[in-house]
Nucleic acid binder design. Structure first.
Lengths: 401, 401
DNA sequence: CTTTAGAAAATCAAGTTGATTTAATTGTTT
DNA sequence: AAACAATTAAATCAACTTGATTTTCTAAAG
């Protein structure tokens, strides 16, 4: 009989690792904090916090700010995240563009490289991505041992026959390609791969509008449509890494045919591709988001028609996410230009009645993401930082085997 | 400035509590295990396991089974969950019925009480529920100090204006009533309240078909329709306790009008109430699920028509849940009689293409729940047991304040 | 204006808890 | 008898807690 892998036990070492993360998280969400304040927030003793803060300071992850005077008692020394404590590389691959960035611990962009591609296959893209990475390391002259890893974002879903590689919103040829392993091989750096929506969600959680939220959904409007799910303080990726792939949910039974074989899929109405199609572009495979921004600015009537038609499916998407997941908020973003996102957002009201329609809300039901068009690369860069610093259940688990 | 409550730190005490739960969980999912086997599974040292097992044995939560011979080495003593180690009371309230049960640690029902009600208000129901509880304690003569708590299941959603108390699928008058607090007051026992779908999910996870699953969705077909979400080993309840309330998701834009004000809501097609309505019953408020079972057995043509019409919306519900959450499986159950659930399940194929349609599956996409018509009370009884024994992130957190 | 009490932050040193390590013992199979 | 697996016991170790102490400031009293 083979035994089921089970949640594993923990020990002091794991506990300490957790506590270290808790301290970082407390400072990240609240800004600079004194040792005493951290102790109160985390329910740990001030002595313990003192030890951890000292450790994190010598590791250069935290740095002291100017001593606070003006209150009674001994003046407090606030500590904040040291931007130079670590760096991360973010990569993003997409139908027409490969982008790479370096960010520091504060999420600030330190370098950026962009290369045009055209429906890249793995054989074409992998060397390019490796090259971008080494160029980034070279030009930003960052200390190699302070590099936390490479995070990569690409369109999902992953590994679904008849969906992953079919149709204009999917990247062809990547169906079962082991991106992370290959890129790790090529670069010698640890690689995390997520779909663009998940990456964007992490970005917003670490540095954007979702900084203080425990549960939210990032609705990513790109070539297709997907959602990144952050639930109860944890990233939820699904049992096969495809949670949030709601682009192919049916919102119009019998509606527009989709390449996946179904009719009336959400992303046939709300996505870059849906807009290009509605505009009747001659070469939708090479249209760019900037075009849409222009058309919006010009008040183009066909684009306005698309907007009007996209609103109700978008409302339904939000409705589905709210009803299924009861998040604190839904964040809108993606490759769709910010002005277009804002135009969509401003026309959403009245939203459908849902479990989110309660008067006792602290956050709006829908927010627009903070990171703009680089949301997905910046989010990708946030992935290694997130996995190194976020308090999560896994950290408590002893590695098994 | 008020500081954001943050994830709190941990210490040895919390770690031990976690490890105790891990041991119980290992035995629950795998059946009787020797100390050495537990040590291997949990990555804890055999000494640690020895200590914990001894402790749990004296607490009567575990009991030794017959020594295993036939292998090399010293014969192992397998330990299993001691059914008499604890008891739990499950309550379920609904439009026409109040049910209470006592279960032991193995989930076996030890007593059951049923009372008819009619659209009960809180003032009517609370004393009744308290009476059921004390009757259960008296008749089953259980040791009071081994009673882990009361779990209660009732239809959701909770506290949503214009939805919670509106329409035939909702219980009127409970909008903001503090059920748990009141019942705790009346009985002097700790009370957990969840919606029926969530309770059923926990039941299936502890004792049913979902015993070994890390992520699954329980689709509860009752008077209305809701889903219980078990994701990555944790119950996900949503930011306002209303996750999974997908009954009011729109599956037919412009379809049948719903009391919530929208049109084409899922539960207008798939629910007991939807079936009653489709049959044109004179008094749908007092129809019973057994009627549907009879009609199915008789091959009633109007009921067959409902079945046929319900399939596609049900497919869509499954599609939505699969795409949004990528679970290992979707479990069907609820107040709908088992033969009807099975009839629905057997007609589902072909399911929609989704992220679940991969050939590399270990579980079927759709399963029928094991607990039958008492699924929701039994699940309710499982709630206190779950919260006492399941390894979860919260356990590691030091209580703050 | 000076002094002093009070408060908050940070540190120190000893104490506690619970997992790990190491070694010994037991009982079975080959 | 030798090998092997399960269990037990004692000693050790890592990390958090506790309580006393020190530091440094503000505010009130004299």
């Amino acid at each position: 009989m083979t035994l089921k892998k089970v949640i594993s036990g923990t020990n002091l070492e794991q506990a300490k690792s957790h506590n270290r993360r808790v301290v970082i998280e407390a400072i990240r969400t609240n800004g600079a904090l004194s040792r005493a304040a951290i102790a109160r927030l985390t329910a740990l003793s001030s002595q313990t916090i003192s030890n951890i803060v000292e450790e994190l300071e010598t590791a250069r992850l935290l740095r002291p700010e100017a001593t606070l005077k003006g209150a009674r008692g001994q003046p407090a020394v606030p500590y904040s995240i040291n931007p130079d404590g670590g760096y991360s590389i973010g990569l993003q691959l997409d139908h027409q563009l490969a982008v790479g960035v370096v960010t520091d611990l504060s999420g600030a962009m330190r370098a950026r490289i962009e290369r045009n591609v055209d429906q890249p296959t793995p054989t074409e893209a992998m060397p390019l991505l490796a090259a971008i990475s080494s160029d980034l390391i070279a030009t930003s002259r960052l200390e190699r041992q302070r590099l936390l890893g490479i995070g990569m974002a690409m369109p999902g879903p992953f590994g679904v026959e008849g969906m992953t590689s079919v149709g204009p919103t999917a990247l062809p040829g990547w169906q079962d390609f082991p991106v992370a392993e290959e890129l790790e091989q090529l670069t010698g750096i640890a690689v995390t791969v997520e779909n663009d929506a998940t990456a964007a969600a992490i970005g917003e959680r670490l540095y954007g509008v979702a900084r203080k939220l425990g549960s939210f959904v990032y609705l990513f409007i790109g070539t297709g449509l997907g959602a990144g799910l952050f639930l109860d303080g944890h990233l939820y990726k699904g049992s096969r890494h495809n949670a949030g792939e709601i682009g192919h949910v049916i919102v119009r039974p019998g509606g527009l045919p989709c390449d996946c074989g179904k009719r009336g899929c959400l992303e046939r109405y709300v996505s870059l591709r849906a807009a290009y199609d509605r505009l009747g572009l001659a070469d939708p495979d090479h249209a760019s988001p900037e075009l849409l921004e222009q058309l919006l600015a010009n008040g183009d009537s066909r684009f306005e028609a698309w907007l009007a038609e996209a609103i109700e499916p978008l409302r339904q998407a939000i409705d589905i996410l709210e009803m299924a997941l009861d998040p604190e908020t839904v964040v809108l973003g993606g490759f769709m230009p910010l002005p277009v996102i804002e135009a969509l957002a401003s026309r959403l009201e009245p939203l459908h009645l849902s479990v989110s329609s309660t008067s006792a809300r602290t956050t709006p039901r829908v927010m627009v993401g903070a990171a703009g068009k680089d949301t997905s690369v910046l989010g990708a860069a946030a992935l290694p930082i997130f996995s190194e610093t976020n308090p999560q259940f896994d950290v408590l688990q002893k590695p098994v085997g």
